[in-house]
Design a protein around this nucleic acid. Structure first.
Lengths: 318, 318
DNA sequence: TCATATTATAGAAACGTTTCAATAGAATAA
DNA sequence: TTATTCTATTGAAACGTTTCTATAATATGA
């Protein structure tokens, strides 16, 4: 591997002069700087990231912890984050599962984005001290270097539920995702708030886990139920789609017999029939905002932490 | 930040003893090793990745360059790669676009996976010398540290086309993706091979770019065509779905008036009506195999480079 | 002209590890 | 007993940069 030393030798200059020249420091004369740059290029020299990171104490890298690569939501989010980081010469590291802990501890990044409910609050608080800043997307958590960048689930779900109630539905049930997760809790909260505002009781609650498979199971429960709800408010799209699929297989008409709504507005939702009414969260844009916020913080600017809004997309599922 | 020096001081031992102890070197007595480990834990010490990388000349990191995060294909692939890497204590860096070049040059990883047609062959060959190994998924390329890990497009497409021909279709057209891309070229090659084997001429060729939007455009061409093909063999699913959507909007019946096939078998394909006949590539598994191959190479083992097979999934689109 | 300020360059320390080579002390062998 | 091997530990060099400080050469001002 060609190092700065090799370049220095070939150029007939000291290591420090080469370093300054390549970093465009004004103290080096234009003439020598150009000569050095040319030689460096010719030798195919590139500074070692490791050595640079060690000295500079910064990695120009942002770490993202997600719970899995599978879901449709993360793609857009990652895309958005990456888009903004790349523009600013930052690299993105992505990880899931156990390796996440290790990466966080090793501080291989200048900041971290957490969207993985498998990482405990306790762990985050524990490492946050003296750590590079941590941005959590999937929980509300106070701490020294911890920043909350979440979606405004509550208000979006309130709006959706209000719309449903105004349509005249009476036996309205809620389909939970992972029960203690921030997203589920705040969405349920918004739902409850609207129900209370209209003096309605929650007709029933189902327990899922945000996956399509858990939707299938819930559909089974509903099929066997003699007193079915007339409306299912789901904590996310994937469960809603699973439920629709299974109910239709059992000849239950949607929305005629049961209405249904989702949350997230994933791409598939547009292609189902009936098309799913949902809350659209522009994850790409949200990702960009997250990245921008982080970069601002790293630049020492003041940052504004405000919740990302969701918008109601009305279709034909209720 | 707490360094090894701090731990050494607190433990009353030298830096080297601490280092050996934490790396489980047998030369340190069990007693001191345990004492040191305890103190390190207590102090919340974790070795600096940068310093370690610099000294060890290895990063335990694999870099993946993809052309975008959007597509449904990459998720599974990334998931598979990551799955295997994490099991072996490796980290995955993902990037797209221009930042990719920089990362490759800086050698921040022990190996690279390339699946981004925007990176030129020339560039790869240029950097490959003296570089960590490069695994290309999206092209056939010879070079010093370059390994080809591709999908067996040719045989899969041959099988698909054969099936189509045997169904009795005569006016068979091919819908190209990005024309010079490895995937498109080899898929077209398999298609041609089957057509030739049955003495059929290619009825028509359309030029797309692997996206759904390019499918819309092609559908327009077909709609305005007086002598339409009776079968469209598409170079991937996304274009096929775009074409179906637009043709149906114009009341052209599929498969009654025109049959259509895809390649990749993305999740959406199952939910369209008619459901799309396609070639299923198990990208998760492929990703795992790629990662395994890389890890074996890094361990100094001999590696076997064999193509990933696709399987025909017959549904109702022709 | 000489003293001083400016400019361009070089030397050397530092970043936090790993690891080679050296050493002191204990255990073993003669 | 003394020489030898073995064990546990340490000191110091090295990895490839950046950056502080020193210095030589040149330009500026009186």
């Amino acid at each position: 591997m060609v190092t700065i030393k090799d370049v220095a030798k070939k150029a007939g200059h000291s290591i420090s002069t080469v370093s300054y020249a390549l970093n465009n420091d004004s103290r080096i004369s234009e003439k020598t700087a150009n000569k050095i740059k040319e030689i460096a290029k010719e030798m195919n020299y590139f500074p070692s990231a490791a050595a640079r990171n060690l000295k500079r104490k910064t990695t120009k890298t942002i770490f993202v912890a997600i719970s899995d690569f599978g879901g449709p939501v993360y793609n857009e989010l990652l895309d958005g984050i990456h888009h903004e980081l790349a523009k600013n010469d930052y690299t993105m590291i992505v990880s899931t599962g156990v390796s996440t802990d290790k990466i966080l501890k090793q501080r291989g990044s200048d900041a971290s984005i957490i969207s993985d409910i498998n990482i405990t609050d306790k762990f985050l608080v524990q490492i946050s001290n003296g750590h590079s800043p941590i941005f959590v997307l999937d929980r509300s958590l106070k701490g020294n270097n911890i920043y909350n960048l979440t979606i405004d689930n509550l208000n979006a779900m309130f709006e959706l539920t209000e719309d449903i109630i105004k349509k005249g539905y009476k036996r309205i049930a809620f389909v939970h995702g992972v029960i203690d997760s921030y997203d589920n809790k705040t969405r349920f909260e918004g739902f409850l708030k609207a129900m209370n505002a209209f003096n309605l009781n929650v007709y029933k609650e189902y327990k899922g886990s945000f996956t399509k498979e858990s939707g299938y199971k819930i559909a089974d429960e509903i099929i066997n139920d003699k007193q079915r709800p007339d409306m299912l408010v789901c904590s996310n799209d994937e469960m809603a789609l699973g439920i629709i699929e299974k109910l239709q297989l059992n000849n239950i008409l949607i929305p005629e017999e049961i209405g249904i709504s989702g949350f997230d507005d994933i791409e598939l939702s547009k292609y189902f029939s009936p098309r799913l009414t949902s809350i659209k969260v522009d994850h790409f844009n949200w990702g960009r905002r997250i990245a921008k916020t982080i970069l601002n913080l790293l630049k020492g600017k003041d940052i504004v932490v405000k919740k990302e809004k969701g918008t109601l997309v009305k279709r034909e599922s209720y």
